[in-house]
Design a protein around this nucleic acid. Structure first.
Length: 845
RNA sequence: GCGGGCGUGAUGGAAUGGUAGACAUAAGAGACUUAAAAUCUCUGGGCCUUGUGCCGUGCGGGUUCGAGUCCCGCCGCCCGCACCA
């Protein structure tokens, strides 16, 4: 009897696949293609269990689809630009490029032993000039099509480090390195006009039927279409040029409940008032809040009474105070609102704080309008309009229409559809990103680089010993002739958001070495991505930007019309979690730093260990398990089997040593079974061949259905079940051999190395990786009899076994003859008898 | 704060509105063994009055012959919030 040794077997089959070029994807118009893609990783240098789970899922799909006869494309690349490389440069003095390429080499070396069916010949990194040069070409094309523009936008500014900070680099309003209070600063930045596509991106969501409903909802809410009214108030006491204040509201029906107006601290009027030191101080305070919407919304609502008043559009004598408020965003609507505290919680909180009036103007149907008042909760539901003169007694909808009509007919405003989606700011004041291929010329202005000069490569000789962007101070790189007039000019030193890099890599994979961004024949054949797999944390930004970019690429001729929705199906997988451990001092401990004792753990030094909840694996909590260690110890198949087995793919999975060990034991059990069967004399007869083969066909059917529907854990449960059946079977050698070979095929997407070894051990020809998927015989799936539970008043009390084809009347007769039913009925007739054929019987008494 | 999701035994989870707990882990008992490991077999939601019993899918209501599943209201946890990737 031989034992299964993953350490020997796995590299052997990986070499066999490589030699057979089993996963090389070649365009072949005669075959139907299938494109599987997992979200490509950031090259941090170490793979983690989240990667293992993600790529294993993709690999199951890729190997399954390949067995089903599809021409599969399953590539891998690196999302290689970004801040960590610059941080490493600052901390360790290494060049971001060297650091990144070393990490890529390390991670690739950790991934290869997983046995993924990846076409490595298509590997790319977004920091390859070969890649980002094509991205620059598309940027220029997009400029030509009017999809790119510049405008002022606010950034987090660290006044000590003299640098722009990312939101994650701002901690409690201070820069993470300097500790200085962060300011909001306005810079001229590059934008993509994603807002041109707001409506298109919204309506097209309805066509994404194979995306999770939650992701589609999140995108719809993010785009945030609203119908509203944009109109002008006349102002009293405002500086010159501000005799009107334009506001946007989605609730024009509440206009008679208005008790204040509020503007953003970045609103032109607020800026114009900064000659008043109190206003300047308040605005400065607002600007120290950070730029995230979250910070804005969570912060205590504060306002500053400007002393300016606006006149109610329907009552010349009604003056409303204008506040500068810290919760109004300049980027949404007009950066100014009117507040109706009775029907908006934020406005209500604000009004209570500053002692402003709260007049209810919408009364719920079941309330008496004379008694209805607002306490601590705003009323945002439907109802009848009250306290609103000509609007009284209208519905909310009618009142909105009426106010819109009156405002429009007076020419002081217009009903308008608004979107929450803002244009995509792509400028980053950093070195390690794709340079924006533009030159600033004193004569010609902003000029795109000539395409033949692409790529605009990042200079290698840079240093990070000083704050700021090294591109800004790199004289020879920066000073170049103007592409148009040839005069002295300067390169743009902003680089692109890394989301740009990841917005088209899936298209580049179809022709990764081409000298144009894409090649028509290749994108036509391979696009779209048939199955995209990644974390739900990308539900909005990455996926929405990619949808936009695909449309832009279509406009610039780089992508066919059919690919403007690039991902046919999307699956979002859960995270990998692990228990957390702390010593008595509260220090986090890794799973290697503890050992089990009765009912718990202790440190290797014998200290007691507090076990915390299972949370996402993270370096800071030290609850990480290194995939490399697991693969060394158990082999890749064990790791793959375990990350698929215990939890539904969309949900979080808890990594446990016991679970990994169980997966390993099972792989060995299957191998032993295979070995036992291989040693049987093929002429050996037995009993129960039919039962075994029926179980086999049912397993083929169940596993197939479960893989198709991403029920990998359920597929594995069925394979466990079939292993038990086969272990106990007394069937003939021929039937058992057929069963074990079929099982190898069914396991191949999850445990490809074991499957190959069983396949070879049973004397099958070629590779499982290139064998067709087994087919379930429909005739073998039908049971002749069925066990029917009998419920009495909805509770299961007994069961009967009947022929599957038995008519309903016959079933009813049998049920009424049933002993348990007779006892309960005691001679009476049931009130109701429900027979669901093949399912259940319910007797209502 | 806003948007989205999730919640079932000791544990991970299964279950087209139709037998709740498949499959697996931990635990217990047994077989084999000088012993241990490994392997195999059995038990495996809770309660009591042990019955044709009662309770049980985060909590409270509702719809239905029948609800883990559908609806309403809570609670808890997780993800995203536009410069992390």
């Amino acid at each position: 009897m031989s034992r299964y040794n993953a350490r020997v077997v796995e590299p052997k089959w990986q070499a066999a696949w490589e030699q057979a070029e089993a996963f090389k994807a070649e365009r072949d118009e005669a075959r139907e293609k299938y494109y599987v893609l997992e979200m490509f990783p950031y090259p941090s240098g170490r793979i983690h269990m989240g990667h293992v789970r993600n790529y294993t899922m993709g690999d199951v799909v890729a190997r399954y689809k390949s067995a089903k006869g599809f021409n599969v494309l399953h590539p891998m690349g690196w999302d290689a630009f970004g801040m960590p490389a610059e941080n490493a440069a600052m901390d360790k003095g290494v060049h971001p490029g060297d650091w990144t390429y070393q990490n890529i080499a390390d991670m690739r070396a950790q991934m290869k032993p997983m046995g993924l069916s990846i076409d490595w010949s298509r590997e790319l990194a977004t920091c390859d000039p070969e890649y980002y040069g094509q991205q620059q070409a598309m940027f220029i094309d997009m400029m030509d099509k009017g999809l790119v523009y510049r405008k002022e936008a606010v950034v987090n500014w660290d006044p000590v480090d003299m640098t722009v900070l990312a939101n994650e680099q701002v901690e409690n309003g201070r820069g993470w390195r300097s500790g200085a209070l962060v300011e909001r600063k306005e810079l001229t930045q590059w934008f993509f006009k994603i807002s041109d596509y707001s409506e298109e991106l919204l309506t097209a969501i309805d066509g994404l039927t194979d995306w999770p409903e939650k992701v589609r909802l999140m995108q719809k809410n993010w785009i945030g279409k609203s119908r509203g009214l944009q109109f002008n108030f006349e102002t009293i006491g405002a500086p010159d040029g501000h005799d009107q204040l334009e506001v946007y509201t989605t609730r024009p029906d509440t206009l008679f409940g208005a008790s204040f107006a509020a503007i953003s601290c970045d609103h032109p009027l607020a800026k114009a008032l900064e000659t008043n030191p109190d206003v300047a101080a308040f605005n400065t305070e607002c600007r120290q809040m950070g730029t995230t919407e979250e910070a804005l919304e969570k912060a205590e609502k504060k306002g500053f009474d400007t002393g300016i008043r606006v006149v109610h559009p329907f009552d010349k004598g009604w003056e409303i105070p204008v506040y500068i408020a810290n919760f109004i965003l300049m980027g949404y609507g007009t950066g100014a609102i009117f507040g109706c505290p009775a029907h908006d919680q934020r406005d209500l909180d604000f009004a209570r704080k500053y002692g402003l009036g709260v007049t209810p103007v919408v009364c719920p149907e079941d309330q008496d309008p004379d008694q209805f008042s607002i306490g601590h909760e705003a009323y945002i539901g439907p109802g009848r309009i009250i306290n609103s003169r000509f609007l009284d007694n209208m519905t909310v909808g009618d009142a909105i229409a009426e106010v819109n009509d009156r405002i429009e007919s007076r020419g002081i405003g217009v009903a308008k559809t608004n979107y929450r989606l803002r244009d995509w700011g792509v400028s980053r004041q950093r070195y390690w990103g794709c340079p924006i291929p533009v030159v600033h010329c004193a004569e010609c202005g902003v000029v795109a680089e000539k395409k033949e000069n692409l790529p605009v490569e990042l200079p290698k000789d840079v240093a990070f010993d000083r704050p700021g962007n090294p591109l800004d101070r790199h004289e020879t790189w920066r000073n170049v002739p103007c592409p148009r007039c040839g005069g002295a000019a300067q390169r743009e030193t902003d680089t692109m958001d890394t989301f740009v890099d990841s917005s088209w890599y899936f298209a580049r994979f179809t022709a990764p070495r081409a000298e144009t961004p894409t090649v028509a024949a290749d994108v036509d054949y391979w696009m779209n991505v048939d199955q995209y797999i990644g974390g739900v944390e990308h539900a909005i930004l990455h996926l929405l930007y990619s949808r936009f970019f695909a449309r832009a690429m279509n406009l610039t001729g780089n992508l066919p019309k059919k690919a403007i929705e690039p991902f046919n199906a999307l699956f979002t997988q859960g995270m990998v979690c692990h228990e957390t451990y702390q010593n008595p001092e509260g220090k986090w401990l890794t799973p290697e730093e503890i050992r089990p004792v009765d009912g718990g753990y202790e440190t290797l030094e014998g200290q007691s260990v507090t076990v915390g909840p299972s949370i996402k694996m993270s370096k800071s909590k030290k609850n990480v398990v290194d995939p490399e260690d697991i693969i060394d110890q158990y082999g890749a198949d064990t790791a793959r089997w375990f990350v698929l087995s215990d939890s539904p793919p969309e949900r979080d999975i808890e990594w446990t040593a016991a679970g990994a060990n169980a997966a390993w034991k099972h792989i060995n059990r299957v191998w032993m079974l295979c070995d036992k069967i291989a040693e049987m004399d093929l002429a050996t007869t037995g009993t129960g061949d039919d039962e075994l083969l029926q179980a086999m066909h049912k397993t083929i059917h169940d596993v197939t259905v479960n893989i198709e529907s991403f029920g990998f854990n359920a597929a594995i449960a069925k394979l466990y079940g079939f292993t038990n059946t086969l272990t106990k079977s007394k069937a003939s050698a021929a039937a058992q051999k057929q069963a074990i070979v079929t099982m190898a095929q069914l396991m191949a997407p999850m445990t490809p190395h074991l499957a190959e070894d069983i396949w070879a051990h049973q004397g099958s020809q070629g590779l499982v990786a290139q064998a067709p998927w087994p087919k379930a015989d429909p005739a073998m799936l039908i049971d002749n009899t069925v066990t029917l539970p009998i419920q009495i008043n909805g509770k299961r009390r007994d069961e009967i076994v009947v022929a599957k084809t038995l008519p309903k009347e016959e079933v009813e007769k049998l049920v009424l003859e049933n002993e348990t039913v007779q006892k309960v009925l005691a001679g009476a007739t049931p009130k109701k008898l429900i027979v669901v054929p093949g399912r259940i019987v319910n007797v209502v008494v």
